[in-house]
Simulated assay, not measured.
Amino acid sequence: MTRTAIGPTAFVRIDHHSAVQLAADVARSCAEQCRLPGAMPDQAAVIASELASNLAKHAKDGALYVQPFRLGAGLEILTADRGPGMSELQRCLTDGYTTTGTLGAGLGAVSRIATDLIIRTEAGVGTLVSARLALPGQPYPGQDVGFLCLAAEGEQECGDTGAIVENDRIRTAIVVDGLGLGHGPQAAEVAQIALRAFHSAADQPLPQLMAVLHRALRHSRGAAVGILRLSTDQAQYCGIGNVRALAFSPRGVGHRLTGQPGIVGWKMPTPQTHSIPLTPHTAAVLHSDGINAIWAHSPSPSMLRLPPPLLTVALAHGHRSGRDDATVLAVRAHQESR
Rank of each mutant, 00 (worst) to 15 (best):
Thr2Glu: 06
Thr4Arg: 11
Phe11Tyr: 14
His17Gly: 05
Gln21Trp: 00
Gln21His: 05
Ala23Asn: 03
Arg28Ile: 06
Met40Cys: 04
Asp42Lys: 04
Ala52His: 00
Ser53Gly: 11
Lys57Leu: 12
Lys57Thr: 11
His58Trp: 13
Asp61Tyr: 06
Ala63His: 07
Leu64Met: 07
Gly72Ile: 08
Leu75Thr: 01
Leu75Ser: 00
Ile77Gln: 04
Gly83Arg: 09
Ser87Thr: 15
Thr94Met: 14
Gly96Gln: 15
Thr99Glu: 10
Gly101Cys: 11
Gly101Lys: 12
Ala109Gln: 14
Ser111Ile: 10
Arg112Cys: 09
Ile113Gln: 10
Val125Pro: 09
Thr127Asp: 10
Pro136Arg: 12
Tyr140Trp: 06
Phe147Asp: 01
Leu148Asp: 06
Cys149His: 02
Cys149Trp: 01
Arg171Ile: 10
Ile174Arg: 10
Val176Leu: 11
Leu181Thr: 03
Gly184Arg: 02
Pro185Ser: 13
Ala188Gln: 10
Ile193Tyr: 04
Arg196Leu: 05
Ala202Thr: 07
Leu209Met: 08
Ala211Met: 14
Val212Cys: 14
Leu213Val: 03
Arg218Trp: 07
His219Cys: 02
Arg221His: 10
Arg229Ser: 05
Arg229Gly: 01
Leu230Gln: 01
Gln234Tyr: 06
Ile240Asp: 07
Ala245Thr: 04
Phe248Asp: 14
Pro250Phe: 13
Gly254Ala: 13
Leu257Arg: 10
Thr258Phe: 12
Gln260His: 03
Trp266Asp: 13
Pro269Tyr: 08
Gln272Lys: 07
Thr273Val: 13
Ser275Val: 11
Ile276Tyr: 04
Leu278Arg: 06
Thr279Ser: 15
Asp289Lys: 07
Gly290Cys: 05
Ile291Asn: 08
Ala293Ser: 14
Ile294Ala: 07
Ser298Val: 09
Leu310Tyr: 09
Leu311Ala: 09
Ala314Phe: 07
His317Asp: 10
His317Gly: 04
Gly318Phe: 01
Asp325His: 09
Ala333Gln: 11
Ser337Arg: 15
Arg338Ala: 14
Arg338Met: 13
